[in-house]
Design a protein around this nucleic acid. Structure first.
Lengths: 341, 341
DNA sequence: TTGTACGCGTTATCAC
DNA sequence: GTGATAACGCGTACAA
């Protein structure tokens, strides 16, 4: 019942060639005569040969593996990103070994070790627990996406521009007061740019504004509770004023929209809302939510492309060490929908 | 700059032992004296040894790889499932090679070939393009999840029970008319059971009911358009009657809820809604939606467990061929929320 | 308890 | 164009 694998040796015996020639058939077919190519092709079919890439990797060192570390699947943002990353297989041919970090630094270290044991050629990191300095020390091509990236190559959304876009839209909606509601965060992580964009535009147009930074927890229920408090707070603090709300992401925006909509049975003129990400929930909500769209497909593609470039460099006889880090920025796209004019 | 890899040979030379002893240190440490173990451990650190699992695989045949084929990331159901599958790494130690099929049969065949080339020990299939007969012919341990499974092992939600639960809940809500809105589908796929459950309960209690089967497209916008038509249809056909709506999944349920809520500014008594899956959108909607919860974590765990059992059987000296197919059913859990009483 | 010799399936380096 | 032969890094009889 055990199917014994057909190897180059079997093909060689069957055709009368040597192993070497069989190998050449795959890696440099032009070096064989056409008729011999056909002989071998025939034998492959007859014996039902199945290639063994692991043996190939051991011999030539190219695993064609890329490791991926995702923090979690909360928010839909990461699953969409993973989806886009996986889909680059068609373009680049690299296979992905995926781990979910669950915000556990020790786990993630273990995963990286495992990935290295499988001889991944490069690593894409979306989780944020391990500092980029440590990541860089692994001495393997790395690209991070939307996280602290001081010592590694990265691809990020131009968060500052996103903040500017969202804030400008609310400004054009003639709001009396602009509020940006976000998590407390370090200035080093890319999304801090959203806060900068917000404050800069408010200052530029001398707009009344408030920055509400808080901890919104790690689950939908926690987040909802926190945002309810925020809602009560702004309702009492700014009654009868047209409030422009710029939320940290579409999930938060949706929660806020739901709170308001359930109270009024609609979105009253008193509120304007802009989210961030263009997640599915932004369109699936009770009203399609205006949002700053991250071009996730482009981000994913750019990340893999950048990684592949580095990996290819390493394969050269005399690889040039990277002179300086590359931080690519992807332009966000403002999506005007029904929560703004 | 190229870091030459440290191998067992290096460790052996460094410690004065043979390669074999080093190998044994990893695979059967008890066969060494404690002090020799420490010597080797010391050397490993000094030389900064990094294991090479690919070489190990080539030598012993155990790749510890499981292939996964997902149809897409639409609906959130599959990303949640993938998340749960990936998280079984902590339990079983298997690594996952993931491909997204995108409903393309030829692509999926190509992916399977690639997976086989990497010597996966087993395969988990969630996509439905390739018939189970063909899957079985690959002669490798396979478990499918929620798809046609005539010739392969599988794990499915007990869809019939789910249909019964949803319908019974609507029945208890004293609806005048019960409607089940679903896609047209073959009787062979597991979720057909939901339809059976619905019709059986309706018959059992002699309930007025209608089964609306249609094609709801492949994108949110298409689905929304189709459901708008359905909404108009039932509104006109059953005015002033309390309508109990059992939707195919939570995304559909959410769309329907939004249509109604936007018209009335609330969910009127005239409508009761039950979804299926317990996707994030069920709780994130304008009203938390009552739904039949699939125990995705349990399904994923069961699938991997079942697969691991088969893989272990194959590793035995004299593997017993599987006598008969295993089809596990996971009980769904009814979630009563705010779209029913 | 430890070592020798060979095998895993492929690629790379020489020869011819 | 084609073929020996030696890697690649580790596991595993079989010996000692």
């Amino acid at each position: 019942m055990k199917q014994k694998k057909v190897t180059f040796d079997d093909i060689a015996r069957h055709t009368g060639f040597s192993k070497t020639t069989i190998s050449r058939y795959f890696n440099n077919p032009d070096s064989l005569t056409v008729e011999n190519q056909e002989k071998i092709a025939q034998a492959l079919k007859e014996l039902n040969y199945q290639e063994n890439k692991l043996a190939k990797v051991l011999a030539n060192g190219k695993s064609e593996f890329i490791g991926v570390i995702i923090p979690n699947f909360y928010l839909g943002y990461f699953s969409e990103m993973l989806n886009c990353i996986l889909n680059t297989y068609e373009q680049f041919g690299y296979k992905f070994l995926v781990f979910v970090g669950n915000d556990n630094k020790e786990s993630e270290r273990k995963y990286i070790k495992e990935l290295l044991a499988y001889k991944i050629e490069g690593l894409i990191v979306l989780s944020h627990t391990i500092p980029s300095r440590e990541l860089a020390s692994y001495n393997i091509p790395i690209v991070t996406i939307e996280r602290e990236d001081q010592f590694v190559n990265s691809v990020n959304t131009n968060n500052y521009m996103g903040g500017v876009q969202a804030t400008s839209l609310l400004y054009k909606n003639n709001c009396d007061i602009l509020l940006h509601i976000n998590s407390v965060m370090s200035e080093e992580i890319p999304s801090y740019g959203r806060i900068m964009g917000f404050t800069d535009i408010c200052r530029e147009h001398d707009l009344k504004n408030e920055l509400i930074l808080a901890d919104f927890g790690n689950s939908y229920q926690e987040t909802k509770q926190c945002l309810e408090n925020v809602y009560q707070y702004i309702k009492e603090k700014y009654p009868h004023q047209k409030k422009g709300l710029f939320l940290a992401n579409d999930t938060h925006a949706s929660i806020m929209l739901n709170l308001i909509f359930r109270e009024y049975g609609k979105l009253p003129d008193e509120y304007r809302i802009v989210g961030f990400d263009d997640s599915p929930i932004a369109t699936e909500s009770i009203l399609p939510i205006s949002t700053v769209g991250q071009q996730i497909d482009l981000i994913a593609y750019t990340a893999v492309e950048l990684l592949v470039a580095q990996m290819n460099e390493r394969k050269k006889r005399r690889p040039e060490p990277q002179k300086e880090l590359i931080h690519k920025e992807i332009t966000p796209v403002l999506m005007r929908r029904e929560t703004t004019d």
